[in-house]
Write a protein that binds this DNA or RNA. Structure first.
Lengths: 336, 336
DNA sequence: TTGAAAGCGGTACCAT
DNA sequence: ATGGTACCGCTTTCAA
């Protein structure tokens, strides 16, 4: 099929030569240019030539000429965990494609905020939608905008100067969890803080929300570190009684399941001795006994976010908006 | 920060003017060109000017000039499920970046094989590593190679003509699971087939492996459709006894956990009446009682795959190789 | 209806 | 040590 002898990549010049027309005509035909009328026979010749050569236009050359792209760049450091994010992500990509954008995820693992922004800017995306795993600085936002990005949108716990912010206030999750526990009469509440790196952007605001909620009713909140391993959970369970807590909000359902099992193995009754609540409403949480209470998060739909991206791209003039996008509500089951 | 009045994107010409040098010098300095010697004061002036302007080179223009890119494109349709894939994915991205590649995931949801290949080819990636969620055709491979891709690597259940194939033979998973069940003395084995779309590329070969393994010992294999919902699991459990099966390999741990719980709720003893085994070795599987047996999959490390990509890019001449990359072995716990 | 030509931003050869 | 310049592939204006 493909010879080593470096077959040259076919260009529009090759197509033109093969079809016996000029490069201009090739461009007109292949882009269905409305402004000019090209005869049907010519169109066919051009298309055939392009097909036979396996011609594919060079996106870089095109963007160089036109001065813009239709690329929406989604930075991704850790691929987002959980079905919540992946559903959202897929929706967003699908909706953006329908709006005729090219959606590209840029793996930015191991890049700092400004370095990442520079790397993204090299691709001249028309929009950047950051899910907040990588911390975008105000300076990074500026670099992107100077490089031609019409829309820089952050979707995360905090807003960033200069960017349109879709604030997913993670505090609401911690708040919802702890409020529920307090309603259940709990007063000394542990909040699991995952030890895994990269989760701080989520766990910190969740803790803050938990604190706020507790402060309002004079309850006590105690951060509890936990790694996502059985050993770590067992160790925590072993010293659980000494902590004197009567409830725990365990970051999300996965950590909650892990901890709940460890507590049970230690002979601690859930929810009798200790209430447990997670977050994300994973199906698996319903399989445990007692069924895991959780906080359900209502994320913005990918569809709506795609529409916002498109609106900002078309009219970049507007002031950076701030939207609150997340609703969180406790779903009591049996573990609390 | 950013005015509506369309501030022009700074180019190397702007940097040159501001630094009082030529564009050539700017290029030399910013790329640390070894061939030419530029005085230190000039270097500083150029760098300062670039900084002040927020200059970021245009990747498209660069690739146009140089005739190649360092982009490795990873098509992604459904973001891969499970910690196995995401770990692998992150490793791969990280390792490729260390080799100085730009890693980009291209969301291809809703594109057919050839359309997708064309879309990818427009970006002129130097390599494409397809995880097999999108079906790459031989023609698609050819389009990519003609557009300059040095390496087209498929990582999936089947090989594709023209591409280097890293065959992850999913059959081994089904084979490992069913062999284990047969060793345990089981003879009538259900194989869960997820009803969710997009999983067929994985579930079909797993079933084939299960069949192959069963045929060798005269055991019976029965495909059992199951959706990832509690209702579906309950319905299946309700008619379980009528199926007359004494074991089930449930695609992966998530489906296995779901089904095991439903069977238990139906009063069916696991593993007494029915053995259950999953795959992927999720931590959560160990939290259930009985602990879930599973098949652990040893995927190629991202590091090694990155090295292969790099090798093929540097020496594209070689014949498409075929590597077998996956080892699978049963991890018996308590459910089988 | 079609073609010639300029120019987008960056690189690298060849002069100076 | 630095500058002038041709060229990469594509689009689009203008002329024929």
């Amino acid at each position: 099929m493909s010879q080593p002898p470096e077959r040259a990549v076919p260009t529009s010049t090759d197509v033109a030569r093969r079809a016996g027309v000029s490069r201009a005509t090739v461009s007109y035909v292949l882009n269905n240019a409305a402004a000019v009328r090209i005869s049907e026979p010519t169109r066919r010749k051009v298309r055939e030539a392009a097909d036979e050569l396996g011609y594919v236009p060079h996106a870089g050359a095109r963007s160089l000429r036109s001065g813009h792209t239709r690329m929406v760049l989604l930075p991704s450091a850790h691929t987002p965990v959980g079905p919540l994010y992946s559903t959202f992500f897929n929706e967003l990509q699908w909706a953006l494609r329908r709006l005729d954008y090219t959606v590209v995820q840029y793996g930015s693992l191991g890049l700092d905020g400004d370095g990442a922004a520079r790397a993204w800017a090299e691709l001249r995306p028309v929009a950047v939608v950051s899910l907040g795993e990588i911390s975008l600085t105000p300076h990074g936002v500026d670099v992107l905008k100077r490089s031609g990005a019409k829309a820089v949108i952050t979707l995360g716990p905090q807003r960033v100067a200069g960017a349109h912010a879709l604030v997913m206030d993670q505090r609401e999750i911690g708040c919802g969890a702890v409020s529920h526990l307090i309603e259940r009469g709990r007063r000394r509440i542990g909040v699991v803080m995952p030890e895994e790196p990269g989760l701080g952007l989520f766990s910190q605001p969740r803790l803050a929300g938990a604190r706020a909620s507790a402060a309002a009713s004079g309850a006590h909140v105690e951060p509890v570190p936990l790694a996502y391993t059985e050993q770590s959970a067992a160790a925590l369970a072993a010293r659980w009684r000494s902590l004197g807590l009567d409830a725990v909000y365990a970051y999300n359902d996965e950590y909650a399941m892990l901890l709940m099992r460890a507590l049970q193995d230690e002979g601690i009754d859930v929810p009798g001795d200790t209430s447990v609540i997670g977050a994300d409403d994973l199906l698996l949480g319903r399989l445990l006994r007692p069924r895991l209470s959780t906080v359900r998060v209502d994320l913005v739909t990918g569809q709506r976010l795609a529409e916002l991206v498109d609106r900002v791209v078309r009219d970049p003039g507007g002031e950076p908006e701030r939207h609150d996008l997340m609703g969180a509500r406790a779903v009591p089951r049996e573990s609390s």
